[in-house]
């Protein structure tokens, strides 16, 4: 029998292979120990990422932020997205009010309601001034559970060549802080947009539950990571389902 831990490891290994195929030659990604070593190496390297994006947050509202994150990701050029992928779509979340910053800084995307703004992905040096002016976003509060919401993403984008689809976006809440949620959802969404899993006009049904329901699968994209108590024990934090057709 294949346990969920094995499935999760395979998923994490796949993500590493996509981003950094050369890591597969240094670590045996098929074993638990090899994968853990690879992840530690990635965490170490993340503090010195060459390419990163910056997300400035004034306020955090889950559906609004999901919508804005997809809109930001859709603006990233494929070549920039590929470089960003090599640094595992590293994103720095900063506390700041975009309205106060737009005179001094050029943003690549600003949320419609001004609650968030993005720079990059670009060389880390490009955001040094912004990062010096602001502070890291401290979202230590538990992620609040909200009723299911439908988010229509990239509504203003050209949808030729692809019919909009509907998926569920599952978000785990138990033991998850807002800061954790931002990290996990950000990786999932920006990579899903780059991979074409999320496209113009798509609808995402945001569903929150303490743990991700395995019954909701199969998933088109999954975000797996260790827990803070047990880094070697993997857990699914957020996932996009395959297309759904019910109302």
């Amino acid at each position: 029998m294949t346990t969920s831990q094995e499935l999760f490891r395979a998923q994490v290994a796949r993500r590493i292979l996509t981003a950094r195929p050369e890591l597969a030659t240094r670590f045996d990604l098929l074993t638990a120990d090899g994968l853990l070593s690879a992840r530690r190496e990635i965490t170490r390297a993340a503090s010195d990422a060459k390419v990163l994006a910056v997300c400035v947050l004034r306020d955090f509202d889950l559906p609004a932020w999901v919508r804005a994150t997809c809109a930001f990701a859709a603006r990233v050029e494929p070549s920039a997205a590929a470089n960003w992928r090599r640094d595992f779509t590293r994103t720095v979340f900063l506390a700041g009010n975009p309205v106060n910053l737009t005179d001094r800084f050029a943003f690549d995307h600003v949320a419609d309601d001004g609650s968030a703004a993005w720079q990059g992905p670009a060389d880390a040096g490009a955001s040094t001034a912004l990062r010096r002016l602001l502070k890291l976003f401290d979202g230590a509060a538990e992620l609040p559970t909200r009723p299911s919401t439908v988010v229509r993403v990239l509504a203003d984008r050209d949808r030729r060549g692809r019919a909009p689809v509907r998926r569920e976006l599952h978000v785990a809440t138990a033991g998850v802080t807002i800061a954790n949620c931002l990290v996990h959802l950000n990786h999932l969404l920006v990579e899903a947009v780059a991979d074409g899993i999320v496209g113009p006009g798509d609808e995402l049904v945001v569903r929150q539950a303490p743990w991700l329901p395995a019954s909701a699968g199969p998933f088109a994209a999954l975000r797996i990571d260790g827990t803070s108590e047990r880094p070697d024990h993997l857990r699914a934090y957020t996932a996009l389902t395959e297309e759904i057709h019910d109302a």
Binding site: F60, A95, G96, N97, N100, L101, D103, R104, L133, L134, K135, F137, D138, G139, A140, A141, E142, T177, I178, A179
Partner: peptide, 13 residues
Amino acid sequence: YGGPVFLDATRYG
């Protein structure tokens, strides 16, 4: 969100 309150004069650099 579990964060602090900041005085924000970033508009003035």
